[in-house]
Amino acid sequence: MIELSINGAPKQLHASTTVAELIIELDLTGKRIAIERNGEIVPRSLFADTTLSSGDSLEIVVAVGGG
């Protein structure tokens, strides 16, 4: 298991989980989201090839109403 932070909350995942697998696990499939990993954007095209590591800090965002 690895431990990382998603949107500021701790989360445990199986070792060698990819971003694409995480999206399925979080039930975010089909949602329009963007992901930042340790301060860097993870492009959608690299979701399947990006393996998460212990200590990673992820931000997963959506567009919401705002001024």
Binding site: D27, L28, K31, R32, A34, I60, V61, A63, V64, G66
Partner: peptide, 20 residues
């Protein structure tokens, strides 16, 4: 139209309508 960017609500039903 302006929109804000916010952390997604983990665990929220993905079929819920969105602003988009």
């Amino acid at each position: 139209v302006t929109v804000a960017i916010r952390r997604t609500n983990i665990g929220q039903d993905a079929t819920q309508p969105s602003l988009l």
